Simulated scan of single mutants.
Amino acid sequence: MTNLFSHHKEIGVVATFSELVNTDFEGVMNAICWERNLVGDFEEIASKLQLKENITEVSIEDLLKLNLSKEGNLAREIILNDLRLLTDFGASPSLNLLKNYERDEEFDFISTDVYSFHVDRSPIATNTFLCTYFGASSDILTNNEATQKILIPEIREKLRALHNDTEDEFDDFLEEYFFDLHYEPKPDAQPINLGLGNLWKLAVDSPEQKVLPCIHRAPIENDGELRLLLIC
């Protein structure tokens, strides 16, 4: 299989789940990809699951109840195995059927929803794992191709106008409302699409993290198409 990501020094590429969880981030590398070309009909699974809300968490029981074709069953076995691998590793994976995420439309000068390039933050040492099985897939952006939005003068000025307390408390305000997690791509930035079927590990802003957190965003969904996404 052609390695699509090896020319990006920010991305490590591995061939097994064991390598994925045991390979450490280092230097500028803050994303690791278990690159896979999956077999099976994941669209069939997405079409037969019931969307109860815009984001519907799918249980193992929901998956097992589906009456699937041979190709659909192959896809189901892959998903079940991924859930098992991550759970045995100690993660808490969630399989989501997605119509869309909630939009943040409170301010016209800064967005804090997941469609905006952002990093994840955690008070405990952790990583983000994700895999898109069907539908539009997420993008990442290298850290040198993005500017933290709160450092852009016109955005910072408007945020300061919202905040009436002292300068010392301004930084706490930016963190409390997650403004500091969001990034603006530079004009020449080239987002990297994570593709279908690949299982990714992304660096999080967390204690003891030795690298910069990975900047990523949710994609705009394709018209009339749901997404099937594993994330933890």
Rank of each mutant, 00 (worst) to 15 (best):
N198D: 07
L159C: 01
L49H: 06
D171M: 07
L141V: 03
L202H: 06
D104C: 10
H163V: 01
I192W: 08
L85N: 13
E157V: 06
E184I: 02
G27C: 05
H7C: 11
V13S: 15
D139W: 11
E19F: 10
F89T: 05
F109H: 10
S69F: 05
L63Q: 02
I231E: 06
F42V: 03
A125L: 14
A161E: 14
G135R: 00
D104W: 10
L98S: 04
F170M: 06
D205Q: 10
L80D: 02
L68A: 02
T142P: 03
H216N: 06
P123C: 07
L226P: 00
C33P: 05
A161N: 13
P219M: 03
S206K: 07
F129V: 04
G224M: 09
T112H: 07
I55M: 12
Y101R: 09
D205Y: 02
I79C: 10
P93K: 02
A91G: 04
L4Y: 12
L74Y: 12
N164S: 15
R103N: 12
K65L: 13
V204L: 13
S206T: 14
M29Q: 15
L194Q: 01
D82A: 01
P213F: 08
I110E: 10
D205K: 06
E221W: 00
G40K: 09
V14S: 02
H7R: 13
L85P: 04
D104I: 09
N127S: 14
A46S: 15
G40T: 09
G40W: 07
Y115S: 07
E157H: 14
F178W: 08
E175P: 01
D223A: 11
E43S: 13
M29G: 07
I231W: 10
E53I: 02
I110D: 08
F178D: 13
H118E: 12
L212N: 09
K99F: 03
I45V: 05
Y177A: 04
E169C: 01
I45K: 02
D104R: 09
L196E: 02
R76E: 03
D62I: 06
E43I: 08
F109C: 04
T2R: 10
L49R: 06
A218F: 05
S94H: 06
T142Y: 04
Q209A: 15
Y101M: 15
Q190I: 14
Y133K: 04
I150N: 09
T112R: 15
L66M: 04
V13P: 11
K149F: 00
L194F: 00
I60V: 12
F117M: 08
S69L: 06
P153Q: 09
N96K: 14
L130E: 06
E61C: 01
R36I: 01
R160K: 15
Y101T: 12
L4H: 11
N96E: 12
L38P: 08
R227F: 00
D168V: 04
P187V: 01
I192T: 05
P93R: 02
I110G: 09
H8F: 15
I155G: 04
R103H: 14
S47Y: 07
T142R: 10
L228P: 01
H182V: 13
I220W: 04
E106K: 14
S122V: 07
N30E: 00
L199K: 08
E10Q: 14
S69Q: 06
C232K: 02
N144V: 11
D188C: 11
D24F: 03
D180Y: 07
